[in-house]
């Protein structure tokens, strides 16, 4: 039996709520991806610096007020997208609350 044809086996569980186990999996996958991108970004910077295309010292300098103001809108949009889900509000109106077919009683 090859790796591909073997039936799946339930993963081990370490947290009281298995959702945390799975979220941690997604979190670590993203962290790995983030580091891969960071590594490539730094390699690009090194290459560009060696070719004289960029001045690394200038890149490392603290941005002045005008540059920070220019990026403010982008920063706000990023924070909005990141944190808006914490409010638990719908973007498109529908039935609220926890959904279950086991009961007709709304738990909202």
């Amino acid at each position: 039996m090859t790796r591909e044809t073997r039936p799946p086996r339930a993963e081990q569980q370490f947290f009281d709520d298995p959702a945390i186990d799975r979220i941690m999996g997604a979190f670590m996958a993203l962290a790995t991806e983030h580091y891969v991108l960071r590594d490539r970004f730094l390699a690009l910077e090194r290459g560009l610096a060696q070719s004289g295309s960029i001045n690394p010292a200038a890149l490392d300098q603290e941005p002045d007020e005008s540059e920070r103001a220019e990026s403010l809108a982008d920063r706000k949009a990023f924070v909005e997208a990141l944190m808006r889900p914490l409010l638990g509000e719908q973007d498109a109106l529908g039935v609220p609350g926890k959904f279950s077919l086991k009961t007709t009683k709304s738990e909202a």
């Binding site: 790796r3 081990q12 370490f14 947290f15 009281d16 186990d21 941690m24 999996g25 670590m28 996958a29 790995t32 991806e33 891969v36």
Partner: peptide, 28 residues
């Protein structure tokens, strides 16, 4: 076993090894 610290410890032992072998950047 019921402490949060140990649960993270155990999870990471299992899954850092899993990610080393499998997943997008795994050895396999």
């Amino acid at each position: 076993e019921d402490t949060t610290l140990y649960q993270f410890y155990a999870w990471l032992e299992r899954h850092l090894q899993r990610m080393k072998y499998a997943g997008r950047y795994g050895l396999v």
